[in-house]
């Protein structure tokens, strides 16, 4: 169950997270969570809503500190957010007062990612990232003028422009319609570089509640249970890359999806009635 290939990039060791609320019992969001993510691996965390997936991601991002255990990147403790770990938020979190170019270049202009870059080199990288996600022609548009799918592309370009070593994605496709979603899954794998060798890929931790999405994208799927959020199973996805529509149609894909669904069905059911 869940084999690690290559060196370990991210490590969550016996991580727990409690939220203390004044006058009420503390909520245990994550409990004794242990998981290693290899360099260049695409790891997907699935679980029913409210299982603490986002809390795990926030701790990896450094936006939240664990109450117990440790979270490390290349063996170093993660204590705060940093440009090495880029985050893509579920609700896009684009800056509404910046156009596409301004959003994509925001980290380069104001953050350490752009330090030492001349302004023309910066502009070129911004344009490359915009081209990469297929938004050329929309550079001067503002977020409120874009569709959901286009906003998500802007968020992806903004993430890539900072060239982080690790990509953390919190249900980035959840708000999109089914067709846009399939297209962006393909795009995501293309941009991630699924044709390249694992050593030259970026490490990805991707959160979703959609099982087919998890199987399509992942090298490994981590299945979580609810309240407290625990790791229930780690499942290898041995589907060949590059993946495409044929992958989605394959019997192996269906079988894996079924298997994961069987693992979380009871949990998901309970989540709908309590």
């Amino acid at each position: 169950m869940g084999t690690i290939n290559g060196s370990i990039k991210l490590r969550l060791a016996h991580v727990g997270k409690r939220f203390d609320a004044a006058g009420r019992a503390a909520t245990v969001a994550v409990d004794d969570f242990t998981l290693d993510v290899a360099q260049g691996e695409f790891l997907v965390i699935v679980g029913p809503s409210g299982c603490g997936k986002t809390t795990v991601l926030n701790m990896l991002a450094g936006l939240d500190r664990p109450s117990a255990g440790s979270v490390t990147l290349d063996g170093r403790e993660i204590t705060r957010p940093g440009p090495a770990r880029g985050v893509m938020f579920q609700d896009y979190a684009l800056f509404p007062w910046q156009n596409v170019r301004g959003n994509v270049g925001f980290g380069l202009k104001h953050g350490p990612a752009g330090a030492g870059l001349a302004s023309d080199a910066r502009a070129r990288r911004v344009q490359d990232c915009i081209d990469l996600v297929g938004l050329n022609g929309a550079e001067d548009k503002y977020p409120h003028q874009l569709s959901g799918g286009m906003r998500q592309r802007v968020a992806l370009a903004r993430l890539m422009a900072n060239e982080p070593e690790v990509l953390l994605m919190d249900e980035p496709l959840a708000a999109l319609d089914a067709q846009t979603r399939l297209i962006l899954q393909d795009e995501l794998l293309r941009i991630w570089g699924q044709d390249r060798a694992q050593s030259s890929r970026r490490t990805v931790v991707f959160i979703t509640h959609a099982i087919d999405e998890a199987v399509f994208l992942a090298d490994r799927v981590a299945v979580m249970t609810t309240r407290p959020g625990r790791l229930k199973a780690l499942i290898d996805v041995p589907l060949a890359r590059p993946r495409n529509d044929a992958t989605r149609a394959s019997a192996e894909f269906q079988a894996l999806s079924q298997h994961i669904w069987s693992l979380i069905r009871d949990e998901a059911y309970r989540a709908t009635v309590t």
């Binding site: 936006l63 985050v87 104001h110």
Partner: peptide, 16 residues
């Protein structure tokens, strides 16, 4: 809050 978080994850300093 998300906009601030987004900027923090880019390593942008507090004052900026």
């Amino acid at each position: 809050r998300r906009l601030i978080d987004a900027a923090r994850t880019m390593g942008i300093p507090q004052r900026t």
